[in-house]
Design a protein around this nucleic acid. Sequence first.
DNA 1: CTATGTAAACAAC
DNA 2: GTTGTTTACATAG
Length: 764
Amino acid sequence: MRTSPRRPLILKRRKLTLPDGNASNSPARDEPDGESKGVPKQEHSKGDKPRDRVECGTQKFPAGIKIINHPTMPNTQVVIIPPDADIQSIIEALTAKGRECGSNGPNKFILISSGGSSRPTGSTAAQQTLQSKAETTLARSTRCFSLRAPSGASRLSVCFPAGSGEATSSGLDNSLTNIQWLGKMSSDGLGPCTVKQEMEKENQTPVQETIKIEEDSIAATATSSSLWQDSISERPPYSYMAMIQFAINSTEKKRMTLKDIYTWIEDHFPYFKYVAKPGWKNSIRHNLSLHDMFVRETSANGKISFWTIHPDANRYLTLDQVFKPLDAGSPTSPEYSESVRLSLCRTLADPFSSLPGRKMKPLLPRVSSYLVPIQFPVSQPLILQSSLKVPQPMAQGASLSGSEAIRSSKRVRIAPKVSVSASLGTPAYSLYHCDERPPPFAPTQSVKENNSQPGEAPASFPAALCIKEEKEDSYPDKWLPSFPPVSSIKEEPVQSDEETGLLLPVPCVKREKHFTVLKSPPRGVSDTVIIKRRKMGRSRRKQHLVLPCSEEPVLVLPESGGSDSFRLASDLPFLQETQSLELSCSQEEGGPFKTPVKEMFCKLPVSSTPSKVPTATPPMGGPDSWRFAPIAKESSELDFSPVRTPQVPFTSLQENLDLLGFNSTPLKNSLFDSPRQLLQTESNDMVSGPLTSSPASNPESTKQSSPELPASGLPENQSLMEGLVLDTMNNSLSKILLDISFSGLEDDILGPEMSWSQFIPELR
DNA sequence: CTATGTAAACAAC
DNA sequence: GTTGTTTACATAG
């Protein structure tokens, strides 16, 4: 709480622990207890070393680096890294140092780029460029990499989720990123780009697909598919929904008859041909009918029905793109296999499955995690006001890891009890964690609740609006796997027409019809007519697809921004935060596979699930409300990201695609080459908007918000910057967003004037 | 709760 | 019998 004024506020943080590979440590776990495990062994530490200087470490650090004891957090030091320094080496040195010191010495390091901090002052052109470039990426993707500790003992894993809203990119991006990072980070083995292999695709799909795909490194996996496929006896790790998508996307026209779908599946997954019970076909049909993303089109003559994937929902996934477990390919190093693979898996895989045991694997990434806790929407301040939404998640989606990674939803929490903060001992800062899905932590409440702030009424924010917006916006998302399913959405909207009314214009007619025709037309289908229709109902079914939405969009994105979250954070008393605030991040996965049904935003009425529908959720509060991210989520997920894409919302498909990610691989955009970039760039992104800006301000700024931002810089108050937290005890490297000045959000809590700079001159 | 999987009842061909 | 739609229920997370 307020007690420690000094503590930096960490807005965002994510931590990942990896299984360590090495003997020495056990996988790190969370801090709290974790301490013990891992590192300990070696510490010779002395017992004390107060935090003061770095003693333990003898390692040499590059010139220019400054290490300062954290004013209030024990065993924590703030490392100011000069712009030109080699972060990797610094991390390694710090890791070694932390290990040496063990639990008694500094074992947590907050890495801050001195350059970055300056940001306010002005970033260099180069930086800006990077930033801007990166912005996007960052925001969206999560980066993870593992690094081998110098000692060799354990591996550090890092994941930066970006939260972005856009998301999109999700999985792939991440994976790529990860990889890249890996390459850079670790000397050992992972080569940077090894990853990218090409994939060949069976299908070659037209353009869009290919493009994205290729880019992605995902590919790596591609080739090998056969391996696991081989295992006939084993049920494929994909959901029916995923397989259907693979099948449909394997064709040039992206449409397929039911029978062909059966055939394709049998051909590619012998399990269904030889082992599965006949009922699997029923399941296929069920899935086709159930998910809105699958649209039935009838040939011109009306005799043939083709199943297609709604363009807005189609990520053009193909089997090639999916990660295959056995894939040997990649790898060069063992590590690769482990860490990279994990990452890939997580990201790529289906959201659902991740677990080993589980059958399905997600193909897509849901975005998962991110950390993003709070994000300020960069772009627009406006958002802030309006909504509270939580930023969300979207991502959801991703998918990640099996066990850990993926979870379905993630939430952000602030200062989770468990986590770091705890470990730190001091409340010094609060973190938001976005974990991937299932947060290890306590669960807790969701943001929503919190959001509202205790006292507050929703009224204050238009949550509802936001939500809707998102939905709408996202509307495309619905299908997109990327997202989560959005459970909330469905319900909400659904229900209410009334409610909707508020929010959305309910254009649609409502239930009834639903669906009927879709026009989507994309691809070659033109000749065909689409027919779907469904009744309303409550069933899970898609009924809605309707796209009526168009109208609605009103709300749209703009405001949505994550402001809410932001706000929340600020508003909430620290205490609460600590407790459990979760902000929501959304997370979702979203995978491609998600059921669209729910998603229907507008459409709503129908909501898919019948049963649920009734429940209706309150507009905002719904559990998922947070999910909706404002903008575009189409892609996927998370919007938090600072970077928001502004308006993206409805961009054309293609655009969306890009955003989304999967296809589009974010990679291209910008990946950071190094942590350093991350630090620098991100911060900008992150920072920029939100805090500072006033709500009104940038509506338009869209994607590019950054440019401006930088310049304007953060207002004084905002000195947000991103940093990395290296916890040698847990072998984790997490990205955090901290408020150096303490103003802004925290003012309430901390008091306006506090500033890190007081403690750390270099920051100035 | 949600997302999935399965089974099954029905309807329309 | 096939194809589609919906329900209902079960399960894992």
